[in-house]
Design a protein around this nucleic acid. Structure first.
Length: 480
RNA sequence: GCCAAGGUGGCAGAAUGGUUAAUGCGACGGACUGCAGAUCCGUUUCCUGGGGGUUCGAUUCCCUCCCUUGGCUCCA
């Protein structure tokens, strides 16, 4: 297992990671409440934690990655009643869309997506435990509240002081609560809402408790890594800490807290309630998964990242095509001729450099997931090989494999370079070469009008041609 | 007001108590090309919010001020 460090927002310092029971690592990331389509901010957070899981697995840890789905809450109920549909069905539909987006983006490292409503027995058991221990109380209407005053350490994760919280603008007064900072963990339901039987009457889970109940069930009373974006530190994660540590009596609940920076929409947080949302699927469709991942991972994960509507994606697309030019060529040659293709072996210095670079990539990422620096190293490799571009054709399959190693690393760990299965396939693969041969003959006899006509027709059909010294190559036109 | 994270070239964004402050985008110049595109090469030596302090040396450490963003019970 490779040693790595991680910035722990609980202790506010960068710490060497030590799993509770190596080599297993329990990773829990707060997923979303699927009441609307996912936006590019969700994409950033999920892509980052996907890289965390990929890296840990590469380094020999056995990661169990859980990402919950809050498939029932006030938003969902409100939205569903507007549309006249069932809230659980609405959540399910949006979650399926989210899964598809994640899949396209290359975020496939989650082992389990538990739904809140599938853990009602665990949630009820934890609530009962909290009531018995005196941390929670039952209100007149059958709702159950967590009594923040009973957990004096409340505020330790976010650095908030309870006294400072009281004047908080959004703290609602509610006569069912004993104190304004108490939060609901079991909501008495009104008729028509999905509800479950409980010792306190029909109700549904509050927000924070689903996470602790799921974690206790799936990962244990403590977990190794708990993550999400920073906007969840307070109150959500603070509440989780209180619930979990009160219930179990064991601390710390999460050994390491990781909080990713937000994606800002032109200097302002993107959020559903502000309405300044760029949809994730639109971004994927516009530039494809590779450039989008490059954009996300191109910044330190804790820094805020400003999303500039057109510009950010355009720039990422340009940068991505620079980054992939050598790897694309290597992949083409290997695909065309197979790994046994004959040719020159690699100069020793270049082979060594490739090997050393892979090691350096791992150590760079092991420094609090410095994806940006790793990407800079990959650009450096590309710059070095770019000069070899005309000579690539002459290398053997194994030499090309060696040159590709840093890119393979980028594929495995960062999820870059995944080739979207779009563009001309099947019949195209047979027709295009015929057209190219005809065009080559036209060019040879100086009939450029004919050559350009062929090129234009292929372009209209979505095939871009590129002439270079070795002949003409073709590819699917980039999206957009 | 309180709690956090930030402020680096035209732009996006790294890093570091010390020779030319990474990388990418853009721009400019060149190579290649029938043209175009793609690609390659070169240039973009005067970029670390203001003010103090510690130090032989600060962009980095400390203090302070200013500004931005987030949180202060909807949020990835």
């Amino acid at each position: 297992m490779r040693r790595f460090t991680v910035y722990d927002s609980r202790t506010r310092e960068t710490r060497v990671f030590a799993p509770l029971s190596p080599p297993r690592v329990g990773l829990y990331v707060c997923g979303l409440t699927p009441y609307a389509p996912a936006h590019v901010g969700h994409g950033r957070t999920m892509t980052f934690f996907d890289v965390v899981a990929r890296a840990l697995r590469r380094w020999g840890y056995r990661v169990f990655y859980v990402q919950n789905v809050t498939n029932l809450d006030d938003h969902l109920i409100a939205r569903a009643s507007e549309d006249g549909v069932d809230p659980l069905a609405l959540a399910d539909r949006h979650f399926q869309d989210f899964r598809r987006s994640m899949d396209t983006l290359g975020n496939r490292s989650v082992n389990h997506y538990p739904f809140a409503t599938d853990y009602v027995p665990e949630i009820l058991a934890q609530i009962r435990q909290l009531v018995e221990k005196g941390y929670a109380y039952v209100a007149d209407d059958g709702s159950v509240y967590f009594s923040v005053a009973k957990f004096p350490e409340y505020g330790k994760l976010s650095g908030q002081k309870l006294e400072a919280l009281k004047p908080g603008a959004r703290l609602e007064l509610d006569e069912r609560k004993r104190a304004p900072e108490d939060f609901v963990i079991w909501k008495a339901t009104t008729p028509g809402e999905p509800s479950w039987e409980s010792p306190w009457g029909p109700g549904r889970p509050g927000w924070h408790i689903e996470d602790t109940a799921m974690i206790f069930r799936l990962l244990g009373e403590r977990c190794d890594l708990h993550g999400a974006a920073v906007d969840l530190i307070f109150p959500h994660h603070e509440a989780e800490v209180a619930l979990a540590e009160a219930a179990s009596g064991v601390a710390p609940f999460a050994n390491y807290w990781m909080h990713g920076g937000l994606l800002l929409m032109e200097e302002e947080k993107m959020s559903k309630s502000l309405g300044n949302v760029a949809l994730l699927d639109d971004a994927i469709e516009r530039v494809g998964p590779g450039p989008l991942r490059l954009y996300y991972l191109n910044a330190q994960y804790r820094s805020p990242l400003v999303f500039q509507a057109g510009k950010s994606l355009e720039e990422a697309r340009e940068a991505y095509s620079r980054l992939t030019v050598v790897y694309d060529r290597i992949s083409e040659l290997l695909e065309r001729d197979g790994p046994e293709r004959p040719g020159a072996e690699l100069p020793e210095a270049l082979g060594d450099a490739a090997e050393q670079l892979v090691e350096r990539l791992d150590t760079t990422l092991a420094d609090d997931f410095n994806t940006r620096e790793a990407i800079a190293l990959l650009f450096g490799w590309t710059r070095r090989l770019a000069e070899e571009l005309p000579r690539l054709e002459g290398y053997s399959g194994s030499a090309l494999e060696e040159l590709a190693q840093p890119y393979r690393w980028g594929e495995e760990v960062l999820g870059l370079f995944v080739r979207a299965p779009t563009g001309p396939t099947g019949a195209w693969a047979a027709i295009v070469p015929v057209a190219l041969a005809a065009r080559a003959r036209a060019r040879a006899r100086g009939d450029y009008a004919e050559a350009d006509r062929i090129r234009d027709e292929l372009r209209a059909a979505g095939v871009e041609l590129e002439d270079d010294s070795s002949g003409t190559r073709w590819r699917a036109a980039p999206p957009g």
